[in-house]
Write a protein that binds this DNA or RNA. Structure first.
Lengths: 69, 69
DNA sequence: ACATTAAGTGCTTTATATTGCACTATTGTA
DNA sequence: TACAATAGTGCAATATAAAGCACTTAATGT
């Protein structure tokens, strides 16, 4: 069982909440272009960007101990 | 109980492992200057940088559901 | 107190993230 | 199939992260 990527988590969460990229961009204060790039795997967002998205989605960015597979 | 910041986690983990900033920079492939800025709270690192640090520290960057306090 | 090691900072260059705009591609649905 | 909504992309401007260097400050041990 490997953990989902940050991208998957954001996408899933967003869809679960029935929010479009446009709405999430609006809500989070992240540029639509930036969000699109991130979700399509093209991005290398800054911590600030990730935190804005997390906030808007009711999530929190953390480190967890990596399980030695 | 509020969760520790990413900075705290990195610092604590690094110190627990008895690794200096210089060593961690070396091990992770992140520039020393970048690590210093991050740990001193001045930085806004990219996801790539955070992942490099996480890898070197045996950590994994994730989102968790935020607890409504 | 002193020496040593580690951490933090000012300055600079280069690389790249962010953003908007206009456009294309995909997806779902009537 | 045709339409509408949503997602993805090329281009360009601006802002800023990454990095090294030299230096200062703080912490640690003898």
């Amino acid at each position: 069982m490997h953990s989902k990527t940050l991208i998957e988590i954001v996408k899933n969460r967003r869809e679960m909440l029935q929010v479009t990229q446009e709405m999430l961009a609006e809500l989070s204060g992240v540029g639509l272009r930036t969000l699109k790039q991130f979700e399509s795997g093209k991005g290398n967002p800054t911590l600030e960007t990730l935190n804005k998205l997390a906030d808007a989605l009711g999530l929190e960015l953390t480190f967890k101990i990596k399980e030695l597979l």
